[in-house]
Structures are given as structure tokens and as C-alpha cells.
Design a protein around this nucleic acid. Sequence first.
DNA 1: CATGATATGTAGACAGTCAAGGTATAAGAG
DNA 2: CTCTTATACCTTGACTGTCTACATATCATG
Lengths: 109, 109
Amino acid sequence: MSIKKPDLLQGTLDLLVLKTLAQGPHHGYGIAQKILLSSRQIIDVQQGSLYPALHRLERKGLVKSEWRESDAGRMARVYSLTRTGHKHLASEIEQWSRYAAAINWVLEG
Amino acid sequence: MSIKKPDLLQGTLDLLVLKTLAQGPHHGYGIAQKILLSSRQIIDVQQGSLYPALHRLERKGLVKSEWRESDAGRMARVYSLTRTGHKHLASEIEQWSRYAAAINWVLEG
DNA sequence: CATGATATGTAGACAGTCAAGGTATAAGAG
DNA sequence: CTCTTATACCTTGACTGTCTACATATCATG
């Protein structure tokens, strides 16, 4: 993690994963890479955080998965957003925006 | 809490408390009120979150406290920032900014 | 054939927040 | 004079989520 406060990830990991999957199906490893890339190397999601998150999201019905062959010709579990997941993502984004705005108001004093 | 994802608080609570104390000493109850006010009613810090956080920050030497008489003529434990706390606040703000920017990059795709 | 990148996953530890409750004082309403 | 509301402190126990570290396996490169 390029950032020293891992706690900041808490509550935003689902958002990051859902947003990444909204741009198309990915396997776990690829999701982590994409987040790292699109966050400009700042957010490096650890595997021990990512896989439990994916399983949690799948239990909640926000993502679904299937085994497929990856680009490299290897088996990988590919995750994609469900319709519920899409709706949920919209609400997560809204909550994040509200919360980030609230923090900034406090910081402005 | 006016926001449905309590996890978002994690990692930002210390920041909120330190920032509030940077504007002058307060007792616990007053800190919660001030955060609620300056966040425009969005962030309502529960006492069960606040007091452990204050004790944690005091253990770390970022805040100090003493018993004083409050405005209402009652005894209250008044917290204030230490010099270390001030420095730490600056770094917390910087980390928050970086992290919030990173999230926004991911959301922009 | 060893190493590093790809790929999935689990186990155990740990931290932080939450809901709920406990204690107590002061002020104002009835 | 008693009830309620606001002020003010704090703890407990449950729960969730992330972390480090580990275990496993394939493929490509050197």
C-alpha cells in the first residue's frame, strides 16, 4: 500500500471493486492491477483484502463469477457486476461523495 | 450517523478529532457537536467511537487532557492538541487528500 | 531448473466502530 | 417536587473488515 493508513481503505474497497467491474469483467488479480493503475499507484489492494471482499460481494449478490480461461491461457475466476451490483454502485458513489464533502467541510473549519 | 456506511468513518475519525481540537480545546461532548455542525449534520460521531478514540490519541501523545469546569459550571475533561498532535494532523490531512484524490481517479475510470 | 509474474485462496491476529447500557448533574416544565 | 431533556463521562461485548503471512499452482524467461 502506497498509503500509510490502511484504515482509509475500509468502507471504500467495495466501491473500488464495484467501479472497476462496472467497466467489464475481470479476475481478482486483474482487479487489483486495475485499481493500482487507475489510482496512479496509490491504492494497492492486498490479496488478503481483495478475495474476502469479492466473496462477500458475491454472497450479497452484487457480483457473480465463473471459471474461464484468462488471456494467458490459464484458468481464472472471472467476476462481473449483477444488475443489483450496478444499482448498489450508484448508491456507494453517492455516499462516498457526501462523506468526502463532509470531511472537507470539517477541514475547512 | 446520517450516513449509512459507518465504515467510512474508520481512518478518518482521528483526522476529524485532531482538526476540531486544532481550533481550540474541547471536551468530548463538545467535539462531537462541533463535528456534527461543521460537517453539516452528516457526520454524527457516536460516544462509543469518540471516547476510545480520544483515549487512543492521548496514549499516542497527540492530545492531552485535564479536568476543568465547563461553561455550564460542571466538571469536564478538556482535551487539547500537543505539538506532536499538530504535526500529526498535517500529515493526516495530506494522506486524506492523497487518498481522496486516488478514489476520484478510480471513479473517473 | 530456478525465478518471477500470474492466479486463487485461507488462517489468525488485530484494530476500530457500533449498539447498548451505566452513572451523574443542571435546568426547565409541569 | 418530580419528570424530562440536555449535558457530560465512560465501558462492555459483538461484529466487521483489513492485514500479514502462508499455501498452492501454472507459465514464461533466463
